[in-house]
């Protein structure tokens, strides 16, 4: 008998289910199809403006920095200003995301934009989020041809652009959007939920920012 069958048989025999096999199958299929939500905390269930405000507050609480701009075209300037304020070289790494590509980067003359995945030598990476979660100040990043996952982790500073209209109250709402975008049961290869910059408390339980991922997470909220 294969290890697979041996394990599954042991599990089946141990469970001695009260319900019939057919009934259990029906329950499991139903659960997988309906994917019921459960308890959604009241905290994030707010009208749009307050929801975005909560997202910003929560993100700042976990040491992300926030800038709000009126429209997508304002993003490149905001990026340049961030680099200058932090004394960083005028160079960013970016994927081929269509929303980022449509922004007027050429107007920032001093800024070098490198495309493709990060090679580990980038000071600053820029990504576009699929959405945000107001309840916890989390940004949700999907991988794909236009969105390298390495940019989320290798640069020292990670700048994430998120549309205000994509900020949901709770994580379940963002996951529902993923289901709609990719099809039920399908996922992007990597979905990163990022809540603040990298940190570690492994030495004497003292929290220090910038463990192996970015030391700083800067969120630019559009709209």
């Amino acid at each position: 008998m294969s290890a697979r069958d041996a394990i599954l048989n042991r599990v089946r025999n141990a469970l001695k289910p009260g319900a019939s096999e057919a009934e259990r199958r029906r329950l499991v299929d139903e659960r997988l199809t309906a994917a019921p939500n459960g308890v959604i905390p009241a905290r994030g269930q707010l009208p749009e403006q307050e929801r975005v405000a909560l997202f910003c507050t929560m993100a700042q609480k976990i040491a992300a920095t926030i800038e709000r701009v009126g429209k997508a075209d304002d993003v490149p300037k905001a990026v340049t200003q961030y680099l200058r304020a932090k004394n960083l070289p005028a160079s960013v790494r970016m994927g081929a995301d269509g929303r980022l590509a449509a922004m007027p980067w050429a107007k920032q003359r001093s800024l070098t934009v490198k495309s493709g995945p990060s090679d580990g030598d980038d000071e600053v990476g820029v990504s576009h989020a699929l959405g945000g979660v107001a309840e916890t100040g989390t940004v949700v990043m999907e991988s794909g041809p236009a969105n390298p996952t390495t940019i989320n982790f290798l640069p020292e500073h990670h700048i994430v652009v998120v549309d205000a209209k994509d900020v949901a109250g709770d994580l379940e709402a963002v996951l529902e959007r993923v289901r709609r975008a990719y099809g039920k049961g399908e996922m992007p290869r990597t979905l990163n939920l990022i809540s603040g910059p990298s940190r570690s408390g492994d030495i004497e339980q003292k929290i220090i920012l910038g463990a192996h991922g970015p030391r700083a997470l800067h969120l630019i909220v559009v709209g």
Binding site: M58, I62, M187, L191, L193, I194, S195, S198
Partner: peptide, 11 residues
């Protein structure tokens, strides 16, 4: 913490 910094779903 309310959320750990990185929650990653790999498929």
């Amino acid at each position: 913490q309310e959320m750990s910094v990185y929650t990653t779903l790999s498929t």
